[in-house]
Amino acid sequence: MALNIIVLIKQIIDIDQMRTDPGTGIPVTQGIPLKVETLSKNAIEAAVKLKEKYGGKVTGIIFGTEKSNAAMKEAYAMGVDEGFIITGYPGNNPSLTAHVISEKIKSIQGFNVVILGNQSADSYTGVLPGLMAGKLSLPLLGNAVSIEEDSGSIKIRRALEDRDQIVSAPMPCIVSVTQEINQPRLPPVLQIMAAGRKPINTEQASLIDLPAGKVLSNLAPKSERKRLIFEDVEKGSEEVAKIIRGEIK
């Protein structure tokens, strides 16, 4: 059955490139490029694969800012068909994010499945899948490592703490994916160029007043490691063995 899929895409700063001030521990976010968040890429890849297998359409939603066009273009290049950017993202406030995105989803007719990451790579909140399921009153299939359609239902495989499961739910439903589900594609240049010409729908979020947390501090933890590095394997092993021996009980 052809699937009408919605995928949720977060744009974040490239945390690999982000440094923290060695003296104060303050993160230096100025001038760090933006990118599509890691798990969102897995979500896009999963959505596009489903479309390629069953036919249908993939709609991307970013709750972001005026600077989110680049992320949507990347999503287009990976195979997303239509994209909505909702501007006004105030930063980490999952309840507000869930509110804004679920209102948008309610305006999209006849979708079958909403796909998103299980925990995003920067804030790592991990509660958006549950919030979306709660707000839209839809079943949630969380932490998928594979997804397929099966006569009107979605079927996923997942790993829970101590067991592996195959579970299904009728559509429409929400599916969150883990990093292990796939290897997101690197789109070819031609597709990237075509994506650049595709229109993007942008609208302003109607924000509601939800209290955000007060950040008291956000600093790099101090690392006070000795950093004694041996390039001489023999000498290194000797020294390290001595240290370890003193700690064996």
Partner: peptide, 24 residues
């Protein structure tokens, strides 16, 4: 507890009760 199932449940009850979550 923030297990795969736990996080999903926390999100659902937050949405249903309107109570905020502090995560992780």
């Amino acid at each position: 507890a923030s297990t795969p199932l736990g996080r999903d449940i926390a999100g659902i009850i937050s949405a249903k009760t309107g109570n905020m979550i502090a995560s992780e």
